[in-house]
């Protein structure tokens, strides 16, 4: 959902649209008391001023709307801007709120999952989960691993918020995704996407690579691009300088 114009190596075109996912802190509000929000936000920022300076942030209104609490959108936007955070979007708003937000020129994201941002990507947003937890305002990410012991069959999709560990085969036509690392201790024939929320440090490990597609934080290789030397054996997949590296685990 964002542009990546600087890296386009093509002569014919000076721009290119690419899909990409970023990890952005989400601020979940559970009160409409702007004074209280401001106080607590400033307190948080004081804890790590460098981290929050110019950091992109998405505001989540879902909790408020679940409890039918109205909030003044314009005042809220002003408050965030004064705190030196860069507001890059809202989610979880009501249709009326969304109209108001769009009128202000701020993007609206769907409430459920992927939050993209076309703001300059800050290195700090790509830190480990611990750093993100402090940014997430008492809503730490659950980083526990998901364990799957049954075969993942064609047509099945598995999504893990943390790491994903699979002790059985992943069939062709199946799709496994994790915000963290993926481990498959069997044949990996389907599609494996690690770091789907933008974690460039995520890796894929499998004991027999026959995948249709492997991807780390949006950088992917399809089966046809896999070198014969890495097929049908235990390998790891990781990102190095934005290149997808596939090699022996040891």
């Amino acid at each position: 959902m964002s542009t990546d114009s600087q890296k386009s190596p093509f002569n014919s075109s000076v721009l290119e649209f690419k899909s990409s996912t970023f990890s952005v802190p989400v601020l979940i509000l559970s009160s409409n008391d702007l004074k209280l929000i401001d106080e607590q936000l400033q307190a948080k920022i004081k804890l790590a001023p460098e981290f929050f300076k110019n950091s992109p942030v998405v505001l989540d209104l879902l909790e408020l709307n679940k409890q039918n609490i109205e909030i003044d959108i314009e005042m809220l936007v002003g408050l965030i801007q004064n705190s030196k955070l860069l507001l890059v979007g809202f989610r979880g708003g009501t249709p009326q709120q969304n109209t108001k937000i769009l009128d202000l020129g701020i993007p609206v994201y769907s409430a459920s999952s992927n939050i993209g941002s076309n703001e300059t990507q800050k290195q700090k947003t790509l830190h480990t989960h611990q750093t993100q937890e402090t940014a997430k305002e008492n809503h730490p990410i659950e980083t526990t691993a998901t364990l799957i012991t049954q075969p993942i069959r064609s047509g099945q999709r598995i999504y893990a918020a943390g790491d994903l560990i699979v002790l059985a085969q992943v069939s062709a036509g199946a799709e496994i995704m994790a915000e963290g690392n993926i481990h498959v201790y069997s044949v990996m024939r389907g599609r494996a996407l690690a770091g789907v929320q933008g974690n460039h440090e995520a890796r894929i490990f499998c004991s027999d690579l026959q995948a249709e597609l492997v991807s780390i934080a949006g950088t992917y290789k399809i089966s046809e691009d896999l070198d014969e030397s890495v097929r049908n054996k235990p390998v790891q997949v990781y990102l190095q300088n934005d290149n997808l590296i596939i090699k022996d685990i040891l």
Binding site: I152, S154, G155, S171, A172, G173
Partner: peptide, 13 residues
């Protein structure tokens, strides 16, 4: 074989 695999996924879920 592929369709059977798909069916096995449905059976288990």
């Amino acid at each position: 074989v592929r369709d059977s695999d798909r069916m096995l996924g449905i059976l288990s879920s």
